[in-house]
């Protein structure tokens, strides 16, 4: 079996990775528009995935599986920016404009109200965010 220290380290990785995983999911639900949601999904993909896979790596011990898990980590880290960039570009070309907060509302609000109807949605979600702040 694996030594106690290695097991503790792997537990730590699992806890941190699991927490960041859920954080990304919550961010995906809470953030107001598509472009900010990409940042939330980045949290789960850039740090949570290596942490969880690293936790598994600690437990498999030295074998070929360790090298394969390392390959999975490298592959995820190499492809995540490309996929995020592809999605952002496709959304921009599809006429989606980033929501730039309450300050950008006057200048860019009309542009954001494009074919996708996202400007409206972004504003409504932002309103919910402000509502929760006033609750606090």
């Amino acid at each position: 079996m694996t030594p106690l220290v290695v097991e503790l380290v792997s537990d730590l990785f699992f806890i941190a990775g699991g927490f960041l995983c859920v954080t990304g999911g919550v961010g995906l639900l809470r953030f107001p528009d598509f472009f900010t949601r990409i940042h939330a999904s980045g949290v789960t993909e850039t740090l949570a995935a290596p942490l969880l896979l690293g936790g598994v790596m600690c437990r498999t011990g030295w074998s070929l599986d360790t090298a394969k898990l390392l390959l999975v980590i490298i592959f995820l880290l190499a492809t995540n920016p490309t996929a995020a960039h592809a999605m952002a570009r496709a959304a921009l070309q599809g006429g989606l404009k980033p929501w730039l907060g309450a300050a950008g509302e006057e200048g860019n609000g009309e542009q954001g109200n494009g074919e996708q109807g996202n400007g409206e949605q972004g504003r409504r979600d932002a309103g919910e965010g402000e509502g929760s702040s006033s609750l606090r």
């Binding site: 699991g18 927490f19 995983c21 859920v22």
Partner: peptide, 13 residues
């Protein structure tokens, strides 16, 4: 716990 966290994230997604 890790499996549960991943499952919760999948539900959120």
């Amino acid at each position: 716990a890790a499996v549960l966290a991943i499952l919760v994230t999948m539900v959120l997604a």
